[in-house]
């Protein structure tokens, strides 16, 4: 990754929120698909397949954000400040928007 500016820096800048956006879209898509295919009725141990399927992309996104957070300083050096905030945005947004998965009723009743 280039140290000085350029698309590399911009890429790091938008990495966090992009990861959130991807997880959010995938989760929303899987939610619709799961309701159509009856996933809430299939239980995997204590939880339904539906909740696992929706939670998985978020867990993956959180993992990606953590990995990138660990690397951003070495990649960008003194320019790492704002991209690091971007990664935190991705992390917190993923946690926050996915929290309702634990409680809310999944499909139409």
């Amino acid at each position: 990754m280039r140290r000085v500016g350029g698309m590399g820096w911009l890429g790091w800048l938008i990495a966090g929120p992009t990861v959130w956006a991807a997880a959010f879209s995938v989760a929303y898509g899987l939610h619709g698909l799961g309701c159509e295919l009856g996933w809430p009725a299939l239980s995997l141990g204590p939880v339904s397949l539906q909740r696992v399927a929706i939670a998985l992309p978020s867990l993956a996104a959180i993992l990606v954000c953590l990995v990138l957070l660990a690397r951003v300083k070495t990649a960008l050096g003194p320019e790492a400040g704002i991209p690091r905030l971007g990664l935190w945005i991705g992390l917190i947004a993923t946690l926050y928007t996915m929290a309702p998965v634990l409680v809310a009723t999944s499909c139409r009743v």
């Binding site: 959010f24 989760a27 929303y28 939610h31 619709g32 309701c35 929706i54 917190i92 947004a93 926050y96 928007t97 996915m98 929290a99 309702p100 998965v101 409680v103 809310a104 009723t105 999944s106 499909c107 139409r108 009743v109």
Partner: peptide, 17 residues
């Protein structure tokens, strides 16, 4: 429009955020 509560909750959370 009749979207399930969980999907509404995603967007409710994002709207808060």
């Amino acid at each position: 429009v009749g979207i399930p509560h969980l999907a509404l909750a995603f967007f409710s959370a994002a709207s808060m955020l």
